[in-house]
Simulated assay, not measured.
Amino acid sequence: MTRPPTAAQRRVIDAADPVTGRVRGTEAQLAALVKRGLAFRHPRPPHDHFLTPAGHRARDAEPTAPSESEAPAAGGVFAARIGGEEAAPKSGPARLREVRGAWQGLLELRRMTHPDGAMDRPCAWERTHLVQAAALALEAAGHPPAEPDSEEGYRVRATPQPEAVAVREPDGARLRACAATLEEAGWQVGEYTEPRTRVRYLLASPRRA
C-alpha cells in the first residue's frame, strides 16, 4: 500500500491551484512529489509542476492521523456559482479575488495543455466539467448568479446533449450578455425557446477550433 503524503507534502498538495492543479514549492518538495507520482513537471517552459490524478486524489482524501502540531488545511475545493445553490459562497472582495484567480488559472491551463498554446478555446478539463467551466466564465465576467429564493440571475445546468450546457436567465438583455461572454470565452452558443413555456435559454458547447 502506498504511504500517504507527509505533512509537508500535504501542505504543498492542498495549496495546489483548484482548477489547474499547479503546485508550488521548493525544488526538493516538487521532486519528491514527482518521485511518488503525485505531480509531474510540464515539458514546456516555464516547466511548472502539476498534480497527477493520484495527486488530485490525495488532495481530496482526508488526511490520516494528523499531528496535533499541524494546523488544519484551510479552505476547500473551488467551485464556480452555477446559480440556485442552497449553500452558495457569499459574494464580496474575497470571493471576487478567488473567482479571478480561478479564471486566470484556467486560462493558464489552456495555454499549457493546447499544443499551440492557445488560450481562446476551452481545454480538455472544461470538456469534462462543462457546467463548472461555463459557470466560471460567467461568474468571472461579473454576471450575477441566481440565488436560491430568486428568479433573477443565471443558472447553468447539464443537458442530455453531449458537450452542451443550458444557461437560463429570465432577463433577455442579460441572457444575451451571457451569450456574448461565453462566445468570447471560446464557446459556441445558440439561443432557443422552450416549446411549452416559450422561455428563452442558451445552449453552449466548447469550441474545438
Rank of each mutant, 00 (worst) to 15 (best):
113 T>P: 12
100 R>I: 05
94 A>M: 12
140 A>D: 04
92 G>V: 15
103 W>F: 14
104 Q>F: 14
145 P>G: 04
141 A>R: 08
91 S>F: 14
140 A>F: 04
116 D>V: 03
135 A>V: 00
102 A>D: 05
121 R>I: 02
131 V>R: 04
144 P>K: 07
120 D>N: 09
99 V>W: 12
97 R>L: 15
127 R>L: 12
90 K>W: 15
135 A>S: 13
136 L>K: 02
143 H>D: 05
97 R>F: 14
108 E>G: 15
89 P>M: 12
124 A>Y: 00
85 E>S: 13
112 M>R: 15
100 R>L: 12
128 T>M: 06
128 T>G: 12
97 R>T: 13
133 A>G: 10
138 L>N: 02
93 P>F: 12
94 A>D: 08
118 A>R: 13
94 A>T: 09
133 A>P: 01
139 E>R: 06
136 L>D: 01
150 S>Y: 00
110 R>P: 10
86 E>L: 10
93 P>A: 13
96 L>E: 09
92 G>F: 15
121 R>S: 05
96 L>Y: 07
118 A>E: 02
142 G>W: 08
137 A>D: 09
149 D>N: 01
87 A>R: 07
124 A>D: 02
99 V>H: 05
96 L>I: 01
86 E>Y: 09
93 P>E: 08
109 L>N: 05
131 V>P: 03
97 R>K: 13
135 A>F: 02
93 P>R: 14
111 R>A: 07
98 E>P: 12
98 E>T: 07
86 E>K: 11
136 L>M: 10
147 E>P: 04
108 E>A: 15
134 A>C: 10
128 T>K: 14
88 A>Q: 09
102 A>F: 10
143 H>G: 00
121 R>M: 14
100 R>T: 07
104 Q>E: 14
130 L>P: 04
148 P>R: 00
150 S>L: 04
142 G>L: 02
133 A>R: 00
116 D>T: 09
124 A>V: 01
99 V>C: 07
150 S>I: 02
83 G>N: 05
88 A>R: 12
87 A>W: 03
131 V>C: 05
113 T>G: 00
148 P>L: 01
83 G>I: 02
140 A>W: 03
138 L>V: 01
106 L>W: 06
109 L>S: 08
123 C>N: 13
98 E>Y: 13
96 L>W: 07
85 E>K: 07
141 A>T: 01
142 G>E: 03
112 M>V: 12
126 E>L: 02
101 G>N: 15
131 V>M: 04
132 Q>G: 01
92 G>Q: 13
122 P>H: 09
119 M>S: 02
126 E>W: 09
84 G>E: 03
112 M>Y: 10
98 E>D: 14
117 G>R: 03
88 A>M: 10
100 R>W: 12
110 R>L: 11
89 P>H: 14
121 R>P: 07
144 P>Q: 06
91 S>K: 11
147 E>F: 08
127 R>M: 12
97 R>A: 15
96 L>K: 08
123 C>Y: 10
114 H>V: 05
122 P>F: 13
145 P>M: 06
123 C>E: 15
93 P>D: 08
118 A>N: 06
